[in-house]
């Protein structure tokens, strides 16, 4: 949480955002059926599906407005100008480039690529191993220079992945070889591990951290995944190459 003065400044902006959201909710709700029969229920204003969204929308607009008023009273209009000036000043662009902000981008990228990119398309074991490997090595080595390099490398890999799925390439490949995405992911894991190893081999501490990361990244998904898939009978989000093999071994 921020300090009080900055909180109030943020409140002005979040309050306005929420008020706008509230107005949007109201604008959508008035389009809902208000009278006539719907679903076997005789419709009057108090039965309408619009009633509750209208109420919620109105309350959000109101509370958002009140928040803006409270914050304005405390810091005044001058604060809005200050924020505006800050956003244009070089101090802001330094903030965008400072290490903790870069770490923030990296966490978000890793999470988003895992959830929206890998989980629905690649074998769960492979995607989880890749996710953990990248996530752990990016931050655990605790070196801003390595973080930047690894992050760039990962971004390139993501680009290749995007090309595979946004073009007809994937459908084309599926006809020729089995599990093209899984094989690509395997390549990603190996190349990322090798690339990261390059930074670690000269330093004993980094070497140790690298090994820990590698072991956790492989063991944790296997352990959790096998528990869920075979003991709890929860099918994995996407079952590809590794699961086909495990299935074969399990039902041997």
């Amino acid at each position: 949480m921020m300090d009080k003065d900055r909180l109030r400044k943020a409140d002005i902006f979040s309050g306005i955002t929420f008020s706008v959201l509230g107005l949007y909710i109201i604008s959508q709700a008035v389009k809902m059926p208000m009278k006539g029969s719907w679903g076997g229920v005789h419709n009057v204003w108090y039965v309408s599906p619009a009633l509750f969204p209208l109420l919620v929308g109105a309350l959000i607009t109101l509370t958002g407005g009140l928040l803006v008023r409270t914050a304005m009273k405390e810091v005044g209009f001058e604060a809005v100008k200050q924020v505006g000036r800050y956003l244009l000043s070089p101090a802001f662009s330094t903030f965008l480039k400072q290490e903790s902000t870069i770490r923030f981008y990296a966490v978000i990228t890793v999470l988003v690529s895992f959830v929206f990119g890998f989980v629905p398309r690649v074998d769960f074991f492979l995607s989880a191993i890749a996710f953990l490997l990248v996530f752990i090595l990016l931050f655990y080595l605790e070196d801003a220079r390595i973080l930047m390099k690894l992050f760039r490398f990962y971004a390139c890999q993501l680009l290749i992945f995007l090309v595979l799925f946004l073009t007809p390439l994937h459908t084309l490949l599926t006809g020729i070889i089995p599990y093209p995405a899984d094989i690509l992911m395997l390549g990603f894991i190996l190349s990322f591990a090798l690339y990261a190893h390059g930074f670690c081999k000269k330093n004993d501490l980094l070497k140790k951290k690298y090994m820990t990361g590698l072991i956790v990244a492989v063991i944790a998904p296997l352990f959790i995944g096998i528990c869920f898939k075979y003991l709890l009978l929860v099918p994995m989000p996407f079952e590809g190459m590794v699961i086909a093999v495990l299935d074969y071994l399990w039902y041997l």
Partner: peptide
């Protein structure tokens, strides 16, 4: 091993 066993699964 995984690569080798994959075709067998079919």
């Amino acid at each position: 091993l995984v690569m080798a066993l994959a075709p067998l699964a079919w």
